[in-house]
């Protein structure tokens, strides 16, 4: 084809746009928690199988992101926070996002089932369906409990990693699930406090849009309290240890303190400093999850280095 014949069909989709479609920040959290689930599991995978499993879990997460953006393109275009996403920005067609999402979902599930085991593949399939169909298409626009119930989708990755390594489900993997499950609502509600205009404009019934900021602030505190027993149980499970316990104590104390401040503030006070405390809570909650899971890896490394020399009470 010569230049004269070239017709610009506007298909100048960049590699970066496709990458954005996969929600890389969510993906990084998925990869990290799935890798932790795999690393701390009692049976070890061959490194190549482990690498491939993480890759297919990441592909499944990317597929979910693409399908979420395909469905939510209408409200993404309204919200300031999401207006720059590839579909509302006109970089990628909606139909292309659907095709990429469906294709990648199929490949990731089948390949994970073949590379690791059928349970891991089935859990990945469940996660994708739960996030895309149950959360994105149904819950998100229906109820202020959307984040609470839908949060389970983001909590599955460590269970998938654990299942890839062991072929089963254990109390430890369920505890990792619960940590992320209870962590998700306060994390997103703190965000929704300072971008609530966006959600009300788009008609998404986030907690503070539907029930008001007072109730949202109280619930942020309640979920921060719920995180304490679950992370403590994790510290005294077979995958816990001194590093997890130390981090669980420090991180929970810090998050609780910030949750109390968030709960006590009025909207007027928050507006004065442009939601500084809520923003701090939001960013600190991200650090909470990364560091707590890093603690689990540190304890796995301790067990590996010291072997039987480390005596740690296992109550769970």
């Amino acid at each position: 084809m010569s230049n004269a014949e070239f017709i610009d069909r506007g298909d100048d989709t960049g590699i970066r746009d496709v990458f954005e479609l996969f929600k890389p920040r969510v993906m990084s959290l998925v990869v990290f928690t799935a890798a932790v689930g795999m690393l701390v599991a009692p049976s070890q995978l061959h490194p190549l199988i482990g690498f491939a499993s993480i890759l297919f879990i990441a592909a499944g997460a990317g597929a979910s992101g693409a399908l979420n953006m395909w469905w939510d393109a209408d409200i993404d275009a309204i919200m300031r926070r999401t207006r720059g996403r590839p579909i509302p920005a006109g970089k990628i067609d909606r139909e292309d996002a659907l095709s990429i999402g469906l294709l990648l979902s199929g490949i990731s599930v089948v390949m994970l089932a073949l590379a690791a085991n059928v349970l891991a593949g089935a859990l990945l399939a469940l996660t994708i369906v739960y996030y895309v169909v149950f959360y994105t298409m149904y819950l998100k626009r229906l109820t202020p409990q959307n984040i609470v119930i839908g949060g389970a989708a983001g909590a599955f990755p460590p269970m998938i990693g654990w299942a890839a390594a062991t072929g089963g489900i254990g109390i430890e993997s369920v505890l990792m699930f619960l940590v992320i499950f209870f962590w998700t609502p306060p994390h997103f509600w703190s965000l929704s406090l300072f971008v609530s205009d966006d959600y009300s404009k788009a008609g998404v019934p986030m907690m503070n849009v539907a029930k008001g900021p007072r109730s949202t602030r109280r619930q942020i505190f309640a979920y921060a309290v719920l995180l304490v027993p679950v992370s403590a149980a994790l510290a005294f499970s077979s995958i816990g240890g001194p590093a997890t316990l130390l981090l669980a104590v420090g991180l929970n104390a810090d998050l609780l303190r910030k949750a109390v401040r968030v709960a006590r503030r009025s909207e007027a006070e928050s507006a004065l400093d442009r939601y500084a405390v809520e923003r701090k809570f939001f960013y600190r909650s991200i650090a909470f999850l990364f560091l707590l899971f890093a603690g689990l890896v540190a304890d796995a490394a301790l067990r590996w280095a010291l072997g039987e020399a480390i005596a740690w009470p296992q109550w769970v």
Binding site: N3, D11, T13, L48, A52, L55
Partner: peptide
């Protein structure tokens, strides 16, 4: 410039497919 963009994109897709084949072989 769209030719160069398209070439880059195709090369990347080709590279990813090649790596996928290598991965399946390795597994």
């Amino acid at each position: 410039p769209a030719f160069a963009n398209r070439w880059r994109r195709n090369a990347l897709v080709g590279g990813i497919l090649g790596l996928f084949v290598a991965l399946v072989f390795g597994i």
